[in-house]
Amino acid sequence: MSRKPDFKYILSQIHGAENLLNCYACGTCTAGCPVRALDERYNPRKIIRMVILGRTEILAGDEIWLCTSCYTCQERCPQDVKITDLIVALRNLAVAEGHLPPGIAMQSKFVAEFGRLYELSDFDNKKREKLGLPVLQISFKEVAQVFPEHSKSKDKETEK
C-alpha cells in the first residue's frame, strides 16, 4: 500500500478535480451510480476517499475505467464535486504513469491516426455520394501533432 499525502493537492490542480476537497462522503454519488448498481468494483465515494487518503494505487487499478461518464453523480453532488470530471482527471494521471486499458489506448490511437474514431475511406465517400450525402475529409495529417509526445512512441498497455 502506497500513501502519498499530497496526492489530493496534486489532483485538485487538474481541470475537473478542483472541488475534490469539498467531499463530505455522503455517498449520493454511489447511491445513484448505474455502474455500481451492477458491479461492486465501482464505487465513486470510495475512489474519492482513497484519493483524499493519498492512496495512489487507485491509478493502477481497473476501477477508474468503469465510469460511463453519465454525469448522474456530478448533477446530484450536494458539495459541487465534479465527480465525472474528477474521474477524467484521475484517468489522465493514470495514463501519464502508463496505466490504461488497451481498448482506451486504441481509441486515442485511431483518433490521432484518422482524425476520427473510425477510419473513413474513398469507398465510404462514394457510398455517401450515392445516398446524396456530402463528401467528408478523410485524412487529417495535422491531428497527430496535437497529441502529447509520449503518446506517439508506442502503444502503452496495462500489465493485466
Partner: peptide, 11 residues
C-alpha cells in the same frame, strides 16, 4: 474532425 470526447480520458 472528432469532437475530442474519445480522447478526453487519456489526454
Amino acid at each position: 474532425c472528432c469532437c475530442g470526447f474519445p480522447v478526453k480520458s487519456t489526454f
